[in-house]
């Protein structure tokens, strides 16, 4: 008997559901990473106003504004797909999960575009 040890079968076809789940996991990891970074940035307050201001000047650079727009997208995806999962699990949405994904992601995309325009607008 041959026991295959693959934690994830990458060659298995991805459908809407598995893409949604995979991206949900990845966006969750990205949010945990952001949270750690955020706590670290806040901690510089304890080192005095100068070090905090120096860091903030760095974090408001154009590169970080673009990353911020990315973060906004990650938050929106995680939140809206989270709503989809709740609807599927507790409001009987299993048969319409693909349509639900399409609609929620479309709304998330519009919010992302609007929010990103504001964020990018802050680049001087």
């Amino acid at each position: 008997m041959y026991k295959r040890r693959k934690p994830y079968d990458l060659s298995y076809t991805h459908f809407v559901g598995s893409w949604a789940w995979l991206l949900h996991r990845l966006s969750g990891l990205a949010l945990i990473f952001y949270l750690c970074l955020h706590v670290w940035v806040i901690h510089t307050l304890t080192l005095g106003p100068e070090s905090f201001n120096r860091l903030m000047a760095f974090l408001t650079s154009p590169l970080f504004r673009i990353l911020e727009a990315g973060l906004w997208g990650v938050i929106l995806y995680h939140a809206f797909n989270g709503v989809r999962v709740i609807v599927v699990d507790f409001f009987g949405g299993s048969l319409s999960h693909k349509k639900l994904f399409l609609v929620l992601i479309a709304v998330a995309f519009l919010l992302w575009a609007a929010g990103s325009a504001v964020i990018i607008g802050h680049i001087h």
Binding site: W21, S94, L95
Partner: peptide, 15 residues
């Protein structure tokens, strides 16, 4: 985790 691979695979199209 509501990944839906099972429903894509089911030959009897069960929900």
């Amino acid at each position: 985790h509501t990944i839906f691979n099972c429903m894509e695979a089911c030959p009897k199209h069960i929900d």
